[in-house]
Amino acid sequence: MSTRRSTLQGLAAGALSLAAGGTWSQDDKSPVTILVGAASSMDFTARLVAEQLRETLGRPVIVVSKLGAGGRVALGELKRSAPDGRTLMFSTSSAFAIYPNIYNKLDYDPVADFTPIAGICWFDVGVATGPMTGATDMKQLIAWSKAQTAGAVYGDAPGAGSSSHFVGIAMALATGVPMAPVHYKDSGVGIIDLASGRLPVLITGTSPLVEQHKSGRIRLLAVSGQQRSPLVPDVPTLREAGVNVAIQNSAGLYGPAKMPRELVEKIYNAVMPMLAKPDVRDRMAGQGMAPSPMTGPQLAASLADERKRFEALVKASGYVREDA
């Protein structure tokens, strides 16, 4: 009888825990997992978020890399998770704004299958050149590109469908200079080819370009965002350099669909104080990121706007959709 009573009490406690899933009970110390679908700066910033949540929530928070298919592997796991706040994901906006416009079939709905919780930061990509062009600014680079009778090319990393790829597409449309992409999965290989003179232009995350830019081996001519990068404040934006293109990514915290509003607000309120900490801002700046705090609804609205802009860009470019 005592065993049966213990079992019933355990089931009742479990039911109460589930019922309280929208707010988490005070003594609930089960771990929170933050999935990351991309390496490098995304993993780095996800760990800053984990530190903050660990501190404010007083419970274990771990970061788990689920690399593959441009983050879609991690998104699939998030989609299948319970909406109890124990599985979250730190992701760029690409999966929600670019992918729906370039793939014929996705195994997720970018709106219905997820809950935007908090916008954390923004980051851009850089446009760099090397000894092949001799250009010291965007005006000279465009003139060099126009003079290439065989057609100009540019490298992009991390490859087809990335924001780097679409910055190149947008530049070609804005300048009227056709430019064919060469896709690199890794920015390091692209930088080697750029510095050695095998590649005329490379468009990739600003952070990997900075050291080589400062050493003089390559020249970072412009950044793609609406504001200058905190990493290289002396480098103009594309618009400042005379090319009417502004593309920057956001990165934020997401949960599965149907998370209770109270739980979303609890996590949002727990993570936001980090963006006011000078050391956190400095560490983010070292990765080429700047704080961009947004509530869940604000993040959702930003993604909707970004999807529309990429839809127009994809149509204008004649980009051929692929199967996911």
Rank of each mutant, 00 (worst) to 15 (best):
V232T: 07
M259S: 06
N244I: 08
K139C: 15
L253T: 04
I267A: 15
K185V: 09
V153G: 05
I142N: 07
A150M: 07
Q148L: 00
E211M: 10
A270H: 11
V223K: 01
A246P: 15
V235D: 08
P260S: 11
L263E: 02
V153S: 12
V245L: 03
R239G: 10
P178V: 05
D193K: 05
K258D: 11
A222Y: 05
R261K: 15
V264W: 14
S229G: 06
N249H: 07
H213F: 09
A147H: 00
D279Y: 08
W144D: 06
G197L: 05
R281Q: 15
V153T: 15
Q226C: 07
M259R: 09
T175A: 09
V153Q: 10
V264S: 13
S250L: 15
V153M: 06
Y154Q: 02
P208Q: 07
D282Y: 08
L141Y: 04
V167D: 00
P230R: 06
V232C: 15
Y184V: 14
L141G: 04
Y254N: 11
R217F: 07
M274D: 01
L238C: 10
Q212I: 00
S207M: 15
M171N: 06
V243N: 13
A152L: 05
L253D: 05
Y184P: 12
A172D: 09
A246N: 11
A270C: 13
R228G: 12
G176R: 12
V167Q: 01
A251Q: 13
I142Y: 10
A222I: 02
P230Q: 07
L199R: 10
D193Y: 02
K185P: 03
G155F: 08
Q212C: 00
F166A: 00
G197F: 03
N249G: 08
P178F: 06
N249E: 14
V167A: 02
I218L: 06
R219Q: 14
A257G: 07
K266N: 12
V201Q: 01
E211S: 13
I169K: 04
R219W: 12
Q212T: 09
R228Q: 10
K146E: 05
P256A: 14
D186T: 09
G252S: 04
R261N: 14
V245Q: 09
L275A: 07
G197A: 08
L202T: 00
